[in-house]
Design a binder for these strands. Structure first.
Lengths: 180, 180
DNA sequence: GCCCGAACTGGACGGACCGTCTCGTTTGGG
DNA sequence: CCCAAACGAGACGGTCCGTCCAGTTCGGGC
């Protein structure tokens, strides 16, 4: 439907705009003008700003495969993973982008489920596989506990992230699970 | 500034509207008309729909004290607590209300911190105190783990809540912590 | 009970963005 | 080179924004 050049210009524009001003300020007219594209072209391909943002996100991370470290030391690997995650989440532009998406999926069920299955699930599944490989029982629950606390701290802004906390958190979480 | 009758009519209206249609459909003009109040009156007291919603939330739960069961059996008490939380979170109108607030605090830092300190912190502190009373080390972290997984499951809509899961989750979380 | 200021109503205002439409122009594969 | 698909420019009525004004009601103090 849309030309590749149009699509990529729109993707770049929407990501820039969200990282600059957040999701609240994002408008279709703003995207169109920033991408140098007419509103008509925008609406021809995407029904809403949610759709544009989501499509841009998919296009951005569609190519790269999910990579989870596996050195044999589960705790160290998880620490590295969580540290990388935390660093990405707290980087200001990415923070704005993530919060935009978080806000967005609260009032858009189809968007939430597609984002969940196509972006989140692959990432979580890869971590789950790594945890399962180490012999942890209930690996899904372990991953949920692992990321749950991170999400809690990030979303509710209760306490800041530190390396010491990440290490203690990983150690504690692993203590909750048996190995067969 | 505002008369009590005005304030309470606005509070009732905004809560009803959010529970009916979600936050995305909430407008100042809608609140004004539903509350039988002029826009001028609305803007005289509250600067934005966020402020109205937040004020309504505070007014709704300002009176009641936070209550955490304490039968002596920590696991049972936490199960009851989490089950009650989960039930509230999944009740459709309350679900819409919570998601509205969640979406809202993503793009409004002052609102987020005020909500956190005045609504969230008291609740979490009460649970933390209950956990600490049972001799758990790092009670704050225990509570974070406990609610983190719930938040993860609710926010990312990965898996549904069941009584069995809540029980297993509480048991697992407690296993991660020492008692002195 | 009346008075006066504070609080409120109702409506109008320009402005931003919405989503749709028309019409003329560009693009690129056969 | 040709033609259909894709695009740009811009106008449209509509909703909600936030502010302003002029007239009305409320309620505590003398």
């Amino acid at each position: 439907m849309a030309r590749d050049s149009t699509r990529s210009r729109v993707h770049a524009a929407v990501l820039l705009l969200v990282m600059e001003n957040g999701y609240g300020q994002l408008t279709m007219e703003g995207i169109a003008s920033r991408a140098g594209v007419s509103k008509q072209t925008l609406y021809r391909t995407w029904p809403s700003r949610s759709a544009v943002l989501f499509d841009a996100l998919l296009g951005r991370s569609g190519g790269e495969d999910v990579e989870v470290p596996d050195t044999g030391d589960l705790a160290a690997d998880l620490e590295a993973l969580i540290l990388a995650t935390v660093e990405e989440m707290t980087d200001p532009p990415m923070n704005r982008l993530l919060r935009a998406v978080t806000a967005d999926i609260q009032s858009d069920d189809p968007l939430a489920s597609e984002l969940s299955t196509r972006l989140l699930a692959p990432q979580l599944d890869a971590v789950t596989a790594r945890v399962a490989r180490a012999g942890i029982t209930d690996p899904e629950e372990a991953v949920e506990l692992l990321y749950g606390a991170v999400l809690h701290r990030w979303l509710l802004r209760t306490r800041p992230f530190t390396t010491a906390w990440v290490k203690a958190h990983v150690a504690r979480t692993l203590r909750a699970f048996d190995r067969h």
